[in-house]
Design a protein around this nucleic acid. Sequence first.
DNA 1: TATCCGGGGTTTTTT
DNA 2: ACCCCGGATA
Length: 756
Amino acid sequence: MIFDFLNDLNPAQYEAVTHPDGAQLVIAGAGSGKTRVLTYKIAYLLANGVSASNILALTFTNKAAREMKSRIESLVGNDTARYLWMGTFHSICARILRTEANKLDFGRDFTIYDTTDTKSVVKAIVKEKQLDDKQYKSSTVLNRISWAKNNMYDPQSYCSNKKIWDYDRSCGILALGEIYVEYQKRLRQANAMDFDDLLFYVNILLNTNEEFRNRYQGLFQYILVDEYQDTNFVQYQIVKSLALPQNNICVVGDDAQSIYSFRGADIQNILNFQSDYSDSQLYKLERNYRSTQNIVDAANSVIKKNIGQIPKDVYSEKEQGDKIKVISLSTDREEASFVATDIRSQKKDYDFNYEDIAILYRTNAQSRVLEDEMRKQAIPYRIYGGLSFYQRKEIKDALAYIRLIINPQDEEALLRIINVPKRGIGDSTIDKIQQYAHENLQNMYDLLAAPLDHGISLSAATAKRVTSFYNLIENMREQIEKLDAYGMMELVLKNSGLLAEALMEKNAEGTDRYQNLDELRNSVREFTETQIQDGAEFVTIQSFLSEVALLTDLDQKEDPTEKKITLMTIHSAKGLEFPIVYIVGLEDNLFPSAMADLENNIEEERRLFYVAITRAMNKCIITYAKSRFKNGQVNFAIPSRFLNDIDQKYVEKTTANSKNTIETNQWGRFERNNDVGKTVFRTQTNLKKLSTTQTPRTDIESPFPINSRVQHSVFGAGTVLAAYRENENDKIEIQFDQVGKKTLLLRFVKLTQITI
DNA sequence: TATCCGGGGTTTTTT
DNA sequence: ACCCCGGATA
């Protein structure tokens, strides 16, 4: 019987899966089988004769899409799942735009600019407009532009909007509109889109192009959206528009797990779903199949502290399980070493495997210490986020060659590789050509053929080098129709000289780079083979590149034979589960983040904590450190307020060494009971050369009297020469005499007394 | 043109 | 501790 698989579902899941046509909201508590419902629902539609190509399923990661597809294939017993439109918003939009690019006056081989590219565009604009790059930091500008696009403001409407103008004025960034205009112009000239453009343009087409709208509304008869609580305004609009007119739309999510507001996600989308679709049906999945009762109950007690959610009652019928362990350590190093040691004992005493274990943290920066410690204790680990494979320099270089070959207008790619490997084309040469190109509205690439013909003043030797770079690229361009993706990648690696360069370097770094390039080559081959298996006749390098641009390292294939623990941020852990989860760094100003002390952000941080706890199936171990090395100096921390949010009856507290108290007096000396008498100073900023114009003051209260001798943990002894007070910030600067070879200025912060 | 040095600034989370 | 940039130097 083809509907046999429905027997796998519990009653609530069954109802959701077999919901008839129309709008449907599935509120799925953590671990309640959300993915299962989506998967089975699609299988159910297929079994009912709906054609795969008429189903659009939007997932949060590409990996989730892949896994779901293969699961569906095994449920329905054939490979029709291949024709599903399934992927992230970004990859689906990219796919649509490849075929519709001409409607927007883009070429179909447009490049997708990543953050590095967009940053560099913004920097160039700010520089050319002679704006202050402190005020107009590329990250600030890009955040703002991203916000604008996510809210469907094009450059014109951005500039003419009074509210936006007021806001930008209050931030002292009034030129933003102007930058946005120029930015968008540049991207267009480069035949490039950024991440936000992919969504933005699809929505533009839906709003303005009737033929387009009819085509895709007709194509997507059924729409399913995973993680709906993390959709932003554009995504909301796209879904809303595509679902018309029949509104066969099924959204799945959990408002308690909304953690992406920083990129525009609006929790209201899920809260308002029922009023947006008046005849929608609500389903709730409340039974958690993942975690023990203790974990579920503890997580519930945390999330209860938030107000304004869809009421639900998540419960587990698994065993009670261990209590959540909360462990206090004195430094971040000790925290890492505790975790490593504990992992080894879990593995030995309880027979867990490495792949059962994850360490989750709030910020990527925390991974460093953990990594060191894992290596020290010989624990195999896999780290996600941070510098991913496709972010590495050599990989980006190789891909930039491909980008330029495919899209000669791609100026960022050109700038990246014109002198990589070194071929004697320096900054001033590049500047001249670029300037000429911009002034005369020409493509930089076209000028390279014969720069002297355009009157660009270069020495004959330099011009020759430029032309030969042009010929290098042109020669490869000629092969693009003939060679498949793998062939092209081989050609690029060889002809560009990147492989040779890595090989020449006879150090560890060089071999590393060589291996990475080799891995890139392998991944192209793998890609090519998979596509052939899926029925493609000829796999182009274009298809590889467009895939890769939207890949995250979460999407990387993992080798199942390699058993490793997982290190990742809580954000990337969303949707995953592990038998044992360590959550580290539960300190105020870290988790919750220092950026989030405003009342409306604290709830999102708390949801993040909820997400972290609910990743755990059997054991959840939480740690915090009393001091942490950050930005080159020791910072003292107090335990996260979230620790108090957990109902203590689910918690077992351990202090690694409970006698270890730290007290600081208001000037940042602190004394430990085990080394009383030693005075350690907390410095707030880095040491810097004395360059102050301030006049020393003698009238202020200072723990360091003039001419007294002090001992610094790193810089040794010094004499206090002067003290300053910096406005009302309770900061005091002290000038030491020759420490090492330099006169140093230290800055101290007045601490409020803390006791841990 | 390439490389080296030093100063200054810096940190949330990601497609 | 780290990265990025600019200026000086080879």
